[in-house]
Simulated scan of single mutants.
Amino acid sequence: MTWNLPNILTVLRLLAAPGVAIMFLYFARPWADWFALILFVVAATTDWIDGYLARAWNQQTKFGAMLDPIADKAMVVIALLVICGFSGMDPWILLPASLIMFRETFVSGLREFLGDTAGTLAVTRLAKWKTAAQMTAIAVLFSTGAFETYFAMSTEGMDGAMIGAIFAGDEPDLQGIVWKWFGGFYSWWIGIILLWAAMILTVVTGYDYFRKSLPYLREAA
């Protein structure tokens, strides 16, 4: 095990994965949403930084190559579980999240089974785009949770008529509920579109890995 800077960043990213969920245990919303978002974005950024440093400084190691995809998958899976939870198991989120988690588990199992021949499942450019789409979608959806919480807090005690009057401009928007609603609306749709795009890339790359592994899965004649 080599403790160079790229590997240290990878380990920190792995430790940050459960930290995203822990934010919701120790902080009230919307602070939990913002802290989880910040932690997730910082950790996701290290995914690019550690890879760049490892190549630039010629510090690529077996330990880093093994741990890097594990850290990425842990971050994505745990974050998706949290988002599914605070979205109330919204089917627009639950379906792509389930397929993404299934694929990540399936490919991890393939790599473990193939052992020394797992090099045939080397990370492709499309797989890197998949990871980027997943992490971007998750970050946007964390902001959606914050906007929705702000909107709920600001409209507490208001009836539908009052809220409608504020949106129509007949009453002053002292609580800023209009921009909070639009923030939640647009971030939700952007996050959903990115999440479904990530799901498509996830399924395509998962099938590609499975196809490449087929020669090693056939029984000997």
Rank of each mutant, 00 (worst) to 15 (best):
N58R: 10
E148F: 13
W179S: 05
L121M: 14
R29A: 10
G145D: 10
S213A: 03
A74E: 02
W34Q: 06
I166A: 07
D33W: 13
K130V: 09
T61N: 02
Q175C: 04
T202F: 06
A221D: 11
Q134A: 02
L95G: 07
T105S: 03
P96L: 07
F27K: 10
L53H: 07
M23Y: 07
A17R: 05
P172M: 09
F182N: 08
A74D: 01
W129D: 01
L14I: 10
Y186H: 14
A79M: 03
D208K: 11
G119Q: 11
G169S: 04
I83F: 05
F86V: 06
P172V: 10
G115N: 02
I38F: 09
L99K: 02
A133T: 01
K180E: 13
D116S: 14
L214V: 15
R218L: 03
I70S: 01
L194A: 07
W196S: 02
F167K: 01
S213D: 00
A220T: 07
P96W: 03
M153I: 12
Y52Q: 08
W188C: 05
R125S: 15
I38Q: 00
L114E: 11
V203S: 11
T124M: 02
L201K: 12
T205F: 04
W181M: 09
G85H: 04
T149E: 13
T45A: 14
F147W: 09
N7A: 04
F142H: 11
M75L: 15
P91C: 11
F86I: 09
